[in-house]
């Protein structure tokens, strides 16, 4: 039976946040900290309200880039996972390079992507895809390869064709693994989108949060920087939560398997 989480799970973090904001605001009043170093919560809220339209629009653009890159990562990651599960040659030949790609910092690869795809949305989406691809590939490959041997015996008994084994057993069994990969990747997508916009989001009509972070840091608009950072975090939390909720619904049928 599911038990409801205690109210303290929600209440304590909120109380802690309010306490932190109060101390921060009080410190600003007492020591008159220069706005350029550390703006007060009130100043951040004020600038957020003043520039709400710009910031909301930037948040939406970042979300679009993250979602597009995430969708691409899901499609490409699942395809590679399928390939690695059926071909030992592909797995042994290509998989090490996937790991290599994962170990290279994204800020090091980003300039190369910008050279190839130009500044703007295309490069940002590719950066999101690259950063969020690996967890999906790894998990889908593991899911497709760790099929219950009893189920494979069952398919052998009924002389199932390879495509029947794939579509009736392997792929459905890999879904919980795909969801786990997607959960990990969903948080990375916002990181990728912000880095992409920071490096490639200039000179285009619609600018995302990464661009705002870049510009506000260049112009010492620290309160805008804080507002952008806060919105990026909020977007990341929203993304992870949305994927978690969707995956919980999707995995309802798989509970028995997960229990086993």
């Amino acid at each position: 039976m599911k038990t409801k989480p205690p109210i303290s799970v929600v209440l304590y973090p909120i109380l802690f946040l309010l306490l932190l904001l109060a101390v921060w605001q009080a410190a600003d009043w007492i020591w008159k900290i220069p706005r350029i170093l550390l703006p007060s919560p009130w100043e951040i809220i004020t600038i957020s309200i003043q520039r709400m339209d710009d910031l909301l629009s930037a948040t939406l653009i970042t979300a679009q880039a993250a979602l597009a890159g995430f969708a691409l990562a899901l499609a490409i990651g699942t395809t590679f996972g399928l390939l690695f599960s059926v071909s030992k040659i592909a797995r042994r030949g290509v998989y090490p390079y996937m790991i290599f790609l994962q170990t290279v910092p994204i800020v090091a690869i980003a300039p190369l992507i910008i050279i190839w795809f130009g500044g703007g949305m295309a490069s940002i989406v590719v950066i999101v895809t690259v950063i969020s691809l690996f967890p999906i590939v790894t998990n889908v490959t593991t899911g497709l390869r760790s099929v219950d041997t009893g189920l494979l015996d069952l398919m052998t008994l009924y002389r199932a064709a390879p495509h029947q084994v794939l579509f009736k057993v392997r792929l459905p069994q890999a879904i919980p693994y795909l969801v786990t990969g997607a959960k990990i990747s969903s948080g990375l997508t916002i990181v990728g989108a912000v880095i992409g916009e920071y490096m490639a989001g200039h000179g285009i009509d619609e600018q995302g949060l990464g661009y705002y972070i870049f510009m506000s840091s260049q112009n010492f608009q620290t309160e805008v920087l804080f507002a952008s950072i806060f919105l990026s975090s909020l977007l990341g939390v929203t993304m992870v939560t949305a994927v978690a909720v969707i995956s919980r619904t999707l995995l309802a049928r798989w509970t028995f398997q997960l229990e086993q």
Partner: peptide, 29 residues
Amino acid sequence: EQPAFVFQDPTLLPWRSAADNIQLPLELE
């Protein structure tokens, strides 16, 4: 013909209803 087999574990596909599990051999054929 090929005999049917019942394993020690039920070996059911958890994402399928009982009816869909029962009809699996018919689908495969």
